[in-house]
C-alpha cells in the first residue's frame, strides 16, 4: 500500500484515538499529581430545622468554603507529586504489615484488598473461559449439522445480556431465600446464606463471569475450527493420533494466535472487574480496583469527591493491566518477527 493511502485510511482513527484516548489519559495523569481544594473559612452558623412542635435552631462552628465575588467557590490547585499515590497505596502501612508477615493486615488496606481480589479473579477466570470456550466449540463442531444453529444461538445468549443486569439476576436467584438458595437448602438440608461471607460471593462472581464471557471465546474458537486444515487432521488420524493428541498437536497450535487474542481481551476486561461488585453488593467483603476508582469519584451527600485519588487509582489500574499483558504482547511480537 502506498504511504499516502495508508495515512488516509489510518489517519482518522489515529486522530480520534489521540483525541479521545491519549489526551484524556494525559490529563488524568496530570490530575493525579495535583490536588484542587476549596478554601475554607471557619464561621459560626445558626441553622434552623423542623422540630416538634416548633423549629429547633442550633448555632455551631462550621467550616464553609469561601465564595469569590462572582459567586463561585474559591479554589486553589497545588502540585503534590506522588502524594495521591501514597494515599491510595499506603506504603508505610503495607510495609509494616509485610514486615510482621501479617497478610490479613495488608488486606485490610483498601488498595491491596482490591488488588488481591482483582488478580485472583482475573487469573482464575482466564483458564476457565479458555477451557469452557474450547470445549463448547469442539462440541458444537462435532454436533449434527441440524442442531448447530440453535446450539450456537443458545450458547451466545449470556454474552448478549447487559453485564449489570446479568449480575443482578444471579444475585436475585441467590440472595435471601432466592429460588436457587431455597433449592440448595432443600437439597442439602441446611441453612445457606450465600451473601453472608466473602468466599461464597467470590464463587458466584467467578461463576457469573465465566458464564458471561465463555460464549465470546466459544464463537472465536468455533470460527477458527472451520479453517482447520483437514489434510493435516486426516494424516494425524492415519498416523494413529488419539483424540487428545490431535487436540494437543493439531487443533491447539492452529488456534494459538486466537487463544492469545482471547486472553488479551479477557485480561484487559477482567482486570477492570466492576459490574460484579455493584451487582452483588459485595463491597463489605470483596472490592475491585475499578470499584475503588469509582468510589473515589462518586460524590457523597455533601458533594465531596477525591478526583486526585481517583486519577491515581486509575493510573495504577492501567499500569497493572500493562504489566499483565507484557508476556502475551512479547509472545505476539516474537511470532510476528518470526513470520515476517
Amino acid at each position: 500500500m502506498k504511504g499516502r493511502t495508508f495515512i488516509a485510511f489510518v489517519g482518522p482513527s489515529l486522530f480520534l484515538m489521540l483525541l479521545f484516548i491519549a489526551a484524556p489519559l494525559v490529563s488524568v495523569l496530570w490530575q493525579s499529581f495535583e490536588v484542587t481544594q476549596q478554601v475554607f473559612e471557619t464561621v459560626e452558623v445558626e441553622t434552623c430545622t423542623p422540630g416538634f412542635p416548633e423549629q429547633t435552631c442550633v448555632t455551631e462552628t462550621r467550616s464553609r468554603p469561601v465564595l469569590m465575588e462572582s459567586g463561585l467557590p474559591l479554589t486553589e490547585t497545588r502540585f503534590v507529586g506522588l502524594e495521591s499515590y501514597r494515599n491510595v497505596l499506603e506504603p508505610e502501612r503495607a510495609a509494616a504489615a509485610l514486615r510482621n508477615g501479617n497478610i490479613g493486615e495488608l488486606l485490610n488496606i483498601d488498595f491491596w484488598k482490591a488488588l488481591r481480589f482483582t488478580l485472583t479473579f482475573t487469573l482464575i477466570t482466564l483458564p476457565l473461559i479458555l477451557g469452557v470456550g474450547l470445549v463448547l466449540a469442539l462440541a458444537v463442531n462435532n454436533a449434527v449439522r441440524s442442531i448447530r444453529g440453535p446450539v450456537i444461538f443458545v450458547s451466545l445468549l449470556p454474552f448478549i445480556i447487559t453485564p449489570v443486569i446479568g449480575a443482578l439476576s444471579i444475585r436475585w436467584l441467590f440472595v435471601g431465600d432466592g429460588i436457587m438458595t431455597a433449592f440448595l437448602e432443600w437439597w442439602l438440608q441446611q441453612d445457606i446464606a450465600m451473601f453472608a461471607q466473602g468466599w461464597t460471593i467470590e464463587i458466584l462472581m467467578l461463576f457469573y463471569r465465566v458464564w458471561h464471557v465463555a460464549p465470546f471465546a466459544f464463537v472465536i474458537f468455533y470460527a477458527a475450527l472451520q479453517t482447520l486444515n483437514m489434510d493435516t487432521m486426516e494424516s494425524a488420524i492415519i498416523d494413529g493420533a488419539s483424540r487428545f493428541e490431535r487436540l494437543r498437536y493439531v487443533i491447539v497450535p492452529h488456534l494459538m494466535p486466537l487463544i492469545i487474542f482471547v486472553s488479551l481481551i479477557h485480561l484487559m476486561d477482567a482486570y477492570r472487574v466492576f459490574e460484579e461488585v455493584i451487582g452483588f453488593r459485595s463491597e463489605a467483603h470483596v472490592i475491585s480496583l475499578q470499584w475503588l476508582t469509582y468510589d473515589f469519584l462518586t460524590p457523597d451527600d455533601s458533594g465531596n469527591r477525591s478526583i486526585s485519588r481517583a486519577s491515581a487509582s486509575s493510573m495504577l489500574t492501567m499500569i497493572g493491566i500493562v504489566i499483565l499483558l507484557i508476556p502475551l504482547l512479547m509472545r505476539t511480537w516474537r511470532d510476528h518477527r518470526g513470520s515476517s
Binding site: 475554607f40 422540630g51 462550621r62 457523597d300 451527600d301 455533601s302 465531596n304
Partner: peptide, 24 residues
C-alpha cells in the same frame, strides 16, 4: 437533626467503608 456538613459527608463515607470490616 442529621448534622450535615462538608466534614460530616467525608465522615459518613469513611464510616460506610470501614464499619463493615468490624462487623465481618
Amino acid at each position: 437533626s442529621f448534622p450535615a456538613s462538608t466534614a460530616m459527608g467525608l465522615m459518613h463515607t469513611a464510616l460506610g467503608n470501614n464499619v463493615a470490616d468490624f462487623l465481618t
